[in-house]
Design a protein around this nucleic acid. Structure first.
Lengths: 139, 139
DNA sequence: CATAAAACCTATAAAAAAGATAGACTAAAT
DNA sequence: ATTTAGTCTATCTTTTTTATAGGTTTTATG
């Protein structure tokens, strides 16, 4: 499961994406709209800013805004930034790989193979779906 | 990521599957073979037993064994038992569903839709792949 | 220039979960 | 009777997650 942090981030980003044309948006507005603790959200938005995903403006009329158009922000990027690995096992993670300490040879491990597939199938979606895709539902 | 508990369980189950014809297998043998703390493994195997996945025999010549053939034990079942939800969000979980507290209407939420797809793509693999499939690698 | 608004930064605390261990109990084999 | 090996329950430690607190800096504007 994704952490609350990542979940909140997604909801906040959606709100920012829905209001791209309205200039900087207040943390407090997002917090209220999405029912998130304002102080916690503050930290999250700051982290997104430090990663180059958000920009901000201080003082009156300030707030946060997206640094790129919603369709250029992939969901996988947000998850990796705030939650770490997307893979189910360390030995199968592309960005946070760690050697398996319970099997003799990963190249021969069937678990490694299957979990690699699960990772691929998740990434196929998460790397290609963007903020824009989660603004509205298209069934 | 899967917890250590679940990871250990998979490795232990693989060992049991590899030795189905050898009668009950000692916890200590599995622990040593797979480099797992014996006491921790004890708890895990017990949990698997209480869930009906393993059987056991006490006393000399005792140990643990699979209650069904490896090809009938789906990976998804083990994950759900020891780790809980497979889905990335509570609002998209089939077995551990919880209402989303940050959005107005899940039926309209684009995040809900995408995460539902991620869940489906993972389940398609995890529900169909069994212990037997992870015994050896077939590329 | 003073004031207020709003993000920035750092630390810390509280709670929950994960990981691991301890030790006494029960059942079975010989 | 003794030994072997799983059973049960409790506890403990560590790490991670979630959340809060409070002062600092920047900016707009009257």
């Amino acid at each position: 499961m994704l952490s609350k942090k990542t979940q909140y981030a997604f909801h906040a980003l959606v709100h920012l994406a829905e209001n791209v044309d309205k200039g900087p948006i207040l943390i407090s507005e997002i917090a209220q709209e999405k029912n998130i603790s304002i102080k916690f959200l503050e930290n999250i938005l700051l982290e997104l800013k430090n990663a180059g995903i958000l920009g901000s403006k201080k003082g009156k009329g300030g707030g946060y805004y997206l640094m790129r158009p919603p369709k250029e922000i992939a969901l996988a990027k947000i998850i990796r930034l705030l939650d770490g690995p997307i893979a189910l096992l360390p030995c199968v993670s592309l960005n946070y790989y760690e050697r398996c300490e319970n099997c003799r040879d990963e190249a021969v491990c069937g678990l490694n193979e299957v979990m690699g597939r699960v990772r691929d199938s998740a990434l196929k979606i998460l790397e290609n779906k963007t903020l824009k895709d989660i603004l509205t539902r298209n069934n």
